[in-house]
Amino acid sequence: MNILVVEDEIKAGNYLCNGLQELGHSVSLARNGLDGLHLALENPFDVIVLDVMMPALDGWEVLRRLRRQTDTPVLFLTARDDVADRIKGLELGADDYLVKPFSFAELVARLRTLNRRGPLREEEFLQVGDLQIDVLRRRVSRDGVRLNLTNKEFALLHLFASHQGQVLSRTLIASRVWDMNFDSDTNVVDVAVRRLRMKVDDPFGSRLIHSVRGIGYRFDLQP
């Protein structure tokens, strides 16, 4: 498995990494929530082990932001053993919850179960007309031509393609792609859509990104 461990406690993080690597797994380690979030969004991990109490960004917020863009299985590994904390973690989208101190063998068993379950398969590959999106490898092509997109452009396109035919407001787009509240005086969404159109639509014979006056945008084969 390709595993991301997000753990700020040095000894615990090293223990997890060394133990999982000895079993043959590939492990990346982040020492705080911000680094963990960045790694999780930039790389295709099979499972994520996430602590709750961390500097920069706590585990609750990391998971909240992750679930806006990915369904990678997440196991909370934390000393917080209150029932309310467990419920909160599961409601935010965690797939499992293990309390410290823990059995390493149990942790491995749970990670293997989550890996077998995996993310939703239908989101691994998206196709709209002649546009193809390989979500896991973050590769996009249209009419057989490979498109080179920035991370934000890919996130924007993935959002559009996941909601084909639906009208998405600028507010929703801003919250999902930039994790920000939309300000009517800010044209960041329109600028990003215009740049994406230059790559996805302009070189080809038909448009997929359509403006909906006064609301936002729609991604569809239909004009």
Rank of each mutant, 00 (worst) to 15 (best):
G59L: 07
F219T: 04
D179Q: 15
R67K: 08
H38S: 13
G129R: 07
I133V: 06
V5W: 06
V47H: 00
D190V: 09
S184D: 13
L90F: 14
Q127K: 12
S28Y: 08
C17V: 13
D82L: 11
A12S: 15
G129M: 06
M198R: 11
P55V: 01
S28H: 12
Q222K: 12
L63Y: 08
E91I: 01
L208M: 05
D143N: 13
T78P: 09
L147E: 01
E153D: 09
G13S: 04
T70N: 02
S184A: 14
R110I: 03
D183K: 14
W60N: 09
F76R: 06
T186E: 14
L156C: 10
M54P: 00
L34S: 11
R195A: 11
D190L: 07
G93K: 06
S26L: 08
V200N: 11
L159G: 03
R112Y: 01
N115G: 04
I10V: 15
V191N: 11
K88R: 15
E61Q: 13
Q132K: 14
P55N: 01
I215H: 07
S169V: 00
D183I: 12
T70P: 09
A109Y: 05
V27I: 09
R137L: 07
V52L: 15
K199V: 04
L149M: 05
C17N: 03
S26C: 08
D82P: 00
V99G: 06
L147M: 06
L114H: 02
L4G: 10
L63A: 10
M180H: 13
L37E: 00
T78N: 05
D71R: 05
E106C: 04
L77P: 12
N187A: 12
D51W: 07
R137S: 10
L77R: 06
R213L: 12
R86V: 14
E123T: 12
L159A: 04
R121F: 10
V74Q: 07
V49C: 05
I173L: 03
V145R: 06
N115D: 04
T78R: 02
D185F: 08
K100T: 04
D58P: 12
Q164A: 09
D82F: 08
A161N: 03
I10E: 15
I133H: 00
S162T: 07
A109N: 05
V108H: 12
H38Q: 11
V6W: 01
G144P: 04
A94N: 01
I10D: 14
R116A: 02
S169E: 00
A12D: 13
G36W: 05
A12G: 09
D95C: 05
G24R: 04
A12W: 07
R137F: 05
K88Y: 08
G214V: 09
F102D: 06
T186M: 11
D71Q: 08
F104A: 02
L34R: 08
M180P: 05
D96F: 07
H25E: 10
R218N: 11
G36T: 07
S184C: 10
N187Y: 13
M53N: 15
D190G: 13
T150S: 15
A94Y: 01
P101M: 00
D130Y: 00
R142V: 11
A161W: 03
D179G: 15
F154S: 00
R176F: 10
L20Y: 11
G13E: 02
T72K: 01
R80V: 06
A109K: 05
D201P: 12
N18R: 14
